[in-house]
Design a protein around this nucleic acid. Structure first.
Length: 304
DNA sequence: CGGGCCCTGGAT
DNA sequence: ATCCAGGGCCCG
C-alpha cells in the first residue's frame, strides 16, 4: 500500500516524534513481523539507544540509534502503519505487529493488517557512491537490508542518466520496470500509473524501445508526481493508510489515472481504461497513452 | 523475464 | 463463495 509519498509522510512524522527520544523497549507481538530476523535478542540490544535519525530510501524506513552500528529497519509492505500514541493503547490495537516504547511514555505502534510488512535490524554499510543513504540521514550509510535497491526519484543523489541507461537495456514493459526497485525505488502501482499518464506512455511498451533521454524524462515525471503527493500527505483511499498521527493524505483527489476506469481523462476526455500489466491493475488513457503516439514518445526508437 | 505466492479483510 | 487489493521475492 504505502509507496514513496506515504512512507515519506510517515518518515517525517516519526522523525518529529522520535528524534532525541530514547527507545526503551522493542516489543514484538507477531512472530511473522520479525521473520527476516527472528532472534529477539538483537532488538533488545538496540533498546536504550537515543534516536538520532529517521531515514528512508524508496519504501524502506530505518532508525539510526545512538551507540549502534545496526539500524532498525521497517518495511510497511501493503498495509503497514506506524502510529504515534501518547500512551500505550488499551486494549491493544487490532493487527498490532510491534511496539516501540519511548522514554516519555508514548509509543510508536507498528500495525499491519496484511502482514507483508516486517521489522528487522541490519548493519549500516557504506553507500557505494559515498553520498547519504537516503532522505533524513546525513551519513553515507544504508542498512545492508536496503542496499540492494536503487536511490529513489526524490533523492538528489540519484544518478538519473545511469538509471535511464540501465532501464533502456531491458525489454520488460515500462510499467514493470518502474515497479522494479533496482532501477529507481519508491514507485508502486499507483504512482507508476500516474507517472505514465503524465509521460503519456503506454504501460506495456518495452523499456528498450524508449530512448535513454525519454526514460530520464519518465523518472523526472515520477519525481514531480510523487513530490506533489508528499506535499499533501500521500494518497488515502480508506483508513488503511494514515500518517503517524492517524491523519489521511489528500492526493487521491489529484489522481489522473489510478482507479479512474470509465471516468473521462483529465487531459482529453477519453474514458480511462483498466487493464492488467505485470499482474497488476493498470489504468491508462487509451488516447493520450496510445503506443507510439505521444509527445514524450516522439523520440521512441524504431529498433535497437 | 513473467507468473505465482505470501496474508487478511472488504466488496461483489 | 469468490475475487481483489497500493509490495516484494522466489521460482522455473
Amino acid at each position: 500500500m504505502p509507496e514513496l509519498p506515504e512512507v515519506e509522510t510517515i518518515r517525517i512524522g516519526v522523525e518529529r516524534r522520535l528524534v532525541g527520544r530514547t527507545v526503551e523497549e522493542i516489543l514484538v507481538h507477531s512472530a511473522r513481523t520479525t521473520r527476516h530476523e527472528p532472534d529477539l535478542s538483537t532488538y533488545a540490544e538496540l533498546a536504550g539507544g537515543e534516536v538520532r535519525e529517521v531515514a528512508r530510501r524508496g519504501k524502506f524506513l530505518w532508525l539510526v540509534l545512538e551507540g549502534s552500528t545496526r539500524a532498525l529497519v521497517v518495511h510497511l509492505g501493503m498495509s503497514g502503519q506506524l502510529l504515534h500514541l501518547r500512551t500505550p493503547p488499551d486494549p491493544p490495537l487490532r493487527h498490532s505487529a510491534a511496539t516501540l516504547v519511548l522514554d516519555d511514555g508514548s509509543v510508536l505502534a507498528f500495525v499491519d493488517q496484511r502482514t507483508f510488512g516486517y521489522l528487522r535490524t541490519s548493519p549500516l554499510v557504506p553507500t557505494s557512491d559515498g553520498h547519504p543513504g537516503g532522505a533524513g540521514t546525513r551519513s553515507g550509510t544504508v542498512p545492508e537490508a536496503a542496499a540492494h535497491i536503487a536511490r529513489d526519484p526524490l533523492d538528489p543523489h540519484l544518478d538519473v542518466e545511469d538509471a535511464a541507461a540501465r532501464m533502456a537495456r531491458t525489454s520488460s514493459a515500462i510499467k514493470r520496470v518502474l515497479l522494479d526497485q533496482r532501477y529507481v525505488s519508491g514507485v508502486g502501482n499507483i504512482y507508476a500509473d500516474e507517472t505514465l499518464w503524465a509521460a503519456q506512455l503506454h504501460p506495456e511498451v518495452p523499456a528498450s524501445s524508449l530512448a535513454t533521454e525519454i526514460l530520464a524524462q519518465v523518472i523526472a515525471r515520477s519525481a514531480e508526481v510523487m513530490g506533489a503527493a508528499v506535499a499533501v500527505g500521500g494518497t488515502s483511499f480508506d483508513s488503511l493508510y494514515v500518517d503517524t498521527e492517524g491523519e489521511s493524505g489528500y492526493f487521491a483527489r489529484e489522481l489522473r489515472a489510478y482507479g479512474r476506469a470509465g471516468a473521462p481523462c483529465r487531459r482529453c476526455g477519453t474514458l480511462v481504461q483498466k487493464l492488467v500489466v505485470g499482474g497488476r491493475a493498470t489504468y491508462m488513457c487509451p488516447r493520450c497513452q496510445a503506443r507510439g503516439a505521444n509527445p514524450v514518445g516522439r523520440m521512441v526508437r524504431l529498433e535497437r
